[in-house]
């Protein structure tokens, strides 16, 4: 499977995705109206607690739902210069958490430097890991590296059965994921008292919303232990965002309208209030600043007078900034909410 960009698919262009999302013929209640009715408009940041650094679109997998349109055929990666700007911002602020994502972030040559620098500055570091990357010959010491720096591993595993996981992430990915979890467990990850956190991420393998987090977490825990003898700390449930490849899937399978209706009907003011963009600042591979990773993929940088590049970072102008919203934001406010840390209510 190739990225939408490599296929020269119209939806590879963020503007085309926004056109679909805002198409009057497919109109759903405006997200800003929903915020207004909840007394949350305009949505503003409550303070930057997470610096989420997307180091690029290069990945060893090509997942069918990927909002980044990442894959082996993508070559946009963060340079050392931009990574250094991120670390300079970290040094001049007290942002407690660094969340490194991609693509497969570990494939970026700056990844390990970002981890070690962030830890030197005493920050908590999260690695959004696709698991299979741990088995690549070039990454054979990755697990040891992550354990050494006590990096929290947040790993995608959409279901505890191979057929479902492989349907979304590619043939054979489930088995590789289990092997990688076993490797991480061997280093202490996911085991109580080790201080090494391994959290898994569930997202629906199709055009439906995620189940309650606690309920599916119990299933994952039981099934992964019984069938494969592996353990983890927590399971986060994340809603599929109607952008990029998942949007292409929704349109191609005639599920778009129904899925958007579901998201709109499931709008939850409490989820909107706790939405992750309120405490996150997202940095793109080229240093551009966004309110979240989804806005990043839609090419919607921070706005309303906030500085738009990491080199121009001014804490006070970003800490309470107004957030850029759109119809896709329903993906984070449906039901129990959805963020990079799972449900938000």
């Amino acid at each position: 499977m190739q990225s939408l960009l490599r296929q020269q698919h119209p939806l590879a262009v963020p503007g085309e995705q926004l056109r679909v999302l805002n198409d009057p013929a497919l109109a759903h209640r405006s997200f800003d109206d929903a915020l207004e009715r909840s007394g949350l408009h305009p949505l503003t940041s409550t303070g930057i607690e997470v610096l989420q650094i997307n180091v690029g679109k290069l990945c060893n997998q090509t997942c069918k739902h990927c909002h980044v349109d990442a894959g082996p055929d993508r070559n946009e990666v963060m340079t050392r210069e931009t990574a250094a700007l991120c670390m300079a911002v970290l040094e001049q602020t007290e942002i407690p958490t660094v969340d490194i994502t991609g693509g497969a972030p570990e494939l970026n040559p700056q990844f390990r430097w970002l981890v070690s620098e962030s830890k030197r500055l005493g920050r908590h570091v999260m690695d959004r890991c696709n698991l299979s990357v741990l088995l690549l010959p070039s990454q054979k010491d990755l697990g040891t590296f992550l354990a050494h720096y006590q990096v929290e591993v947040v790993a995608s595993l959409p279901y505890f059965m191979a057929a479902y996981t492989d349907a979304q992430r590619g043939e054979g990915v489930f088995d590789k994921s289990i092997e990688a979890i076993r490797l991480l467990n061997g280093l202490g990850y996911g085991r109580e008292g080790s201080g090494l956190e391994l959290n898994l991420v569930y997202n629906p393998v199709g055009a439906f919303l995620p189940p309650p987090q606690a309920s599916i977490e119990a299933d994952f825990r039981r099934e992964l232990l019984v069938r494969h003898g592996v353990v983890f700390n927590s399971l986060y449930t994340i809603t599929n965002m109607p952008i990029s490849r998942f949007l292409e899937f929704l349109l191609r399978t005639d599920n778009y309208d129904r899925y958007m209706q579901k998201l709109v009907q499931a709008y939850n003011p409490a989820a909107a209030s706790g939405v992750m963009c309120r405490n996150t600042l997202s940095v793109g591979w080229d240093g551009v600043l966004y309110d979240c990773d989804f806005n990043q993929m839609l090419d919607l940088p921070v706005s309303f007078g906030a500085p738009v590049h990491i080199r121009d970072f001014v804490h006070d102008r970003l800490d309470q900034r107004r957030i850029v919203t759109g119809q896709h934001c329903y993906g984070c406010t449906a039901g129990a909410g959805s963020g990079c840390g799972g449900t938000t209510v």
């Binding site: 279901y159 059965m161 479902y164 629906p204 199709g206 439906f208 919303l209 995620p210 189940p211 309650p212 309920s215 599916i216 299933d219």
Partner: peptide
């Protein structure tokens, strides 16, 4: 069918 999927059930 939708609700079962949304509750985390699988096709089996």
């Amino acid at each position: 069918t939708q609700d079962c999927l949304q509750k985390g059930s699988n096709l089996d």
